[in-house]
């Protein structure tokens, strides 16, 4: 029983981090990105490859994961600057499809569709972090740190600049805001969060394959942000809590796992549609985080 609760807790902490990271993009910056799950995946694969081949310390795994993910995040950031607003989502969709394709087909690097298994447990600067409790602790620290960063950023002048770029890019530029740079910064920070979450995820589940980082995952994270309240500080946290707790509740009602998985998708889909139609600001959002300001 404790193991089960522990696993739910770790997943919750990781998803909180992920949805907070996406909130920086989709909520504050108005950049709906379907690539966040892929960045999560790049972090996971980077750490997994390093751990399996070289057995490195967690700090190094984090650094490499973050480094690799930032490179790709910069590519997506570049897309956000060069691609027209309406098409940005499509571009991120294309991006994630290309990366998943690489995950699935580069057998020598990523193990292809079989993935990477037998990821050894990590050590953190000598301290043995192999127990699930240790990983839970790290995941919670990551989640709290992400919320703290989001809090500091969101309430500052930088957060104001992000929201202005979302509402009216031209206006923001006329006030001296470098829209491209603001977006790149948001992307890099979101990438760091996703990368570290990916790293921890790989160590926790000890087996990763491309299926965990597909579009379905990306939409799940987006749903957490939208339902919880995009552009608010606690919205993504609430969204993660709801959408992680839901499948567990379904499981508690005795539905067979596979069906619960599909039922889950139906429930998420319906929720997402309902919220976007009737309450786009989510449960918590005081401001309509995703709508551009009326002009």
């Amino acid at each position: 029983m404790t193991d089960y609760l522990l696993s739910v807790a770790i997943l919750l902490a990781l998803y909180v981090t992920l949805s907070v990271s996406l909130n920086l993009l989709a909520g504050y910056s108005g950049l709906i990105s379907l690539a966040q799950a892929t960045l999560f995946g790049i972090g996971a694969y980077a750490s997994a490859i390093l751990a399996v081949r070289f057995g490195v310390d967690l700090t190094l795994a984090f650094l490499v994961a973050v480094g690799a993910t930032i490179v790709f995040a910069l590519a997506v950031a570049l897309l956000s600057v060069r691609v027209r607003d309406d098409y940005f989502v499509v571009a991120t969709f294309g991006f994630q499809a290309v990366v998943v394709s690489v995950f699935t087909n580069s057998v020598r690097l990523t193990g292809g569709p079989m993935g990477i298994k037998g990821i050894p447990k990590p050590t953190l600067l000598g301290w043995d972090a192999s127990s699930n409790w240790a990983l839970l602790l790290l995941a919670c620290i990551l989640a709290v740190a992400s919320i703290a960063v989001e809090w500091r950023m969101g309430r500052s002048a930088f957060g104001r600049a992000m929201r202005a770029c979302r509402d009216d890019e031209v206006f923001a530029q006329s006030l001296g805001k470098n829209v491209g740079r603001t977006r790149v910064v948001a992307f890099v920070i979101a990438a760091c969060m996703a990368a570290m979450a990916g790293s921890l995820y790989a160590y926790y589940v000890t087996f990763i394959d491309p299926a965990s980082f597909t579009l379905t995952e990306a939409i799940l994270i987006l749903a957490m942000v939208i339902i919880g309240g995009a552009g608010s500080i606690w919205g993504p946290v609430l969204g993660a809590g709801l959408l992680v707790a839901l499948p567990e509740a379904l499981r508690a009602f005795g539905l067979p796992t596979l069906a619960a998985g599909n039922l889950r998708q139906i429930v998420y889909g319906v929720l997402l549609v309902l919220f976007v139609a009737f309450r786009p600001e989510g449960i918590l959002g005081a401001e309509a985080g995703l709508k551009k300001g009326d002009r």
Partner: peptide, 19 residues
């Protein structure tokens, strides 16, 4: 196996250079 990847890479190039 690269069919999808290529299609989407093409899509991204299109969106950036010739939307």
């Amino acid at each position: 196996q690269w069919k999808d990847g290529i299609t989407f890479a093409l899509l991204i190039l299109l969106l950036v250079f010739r939307p």
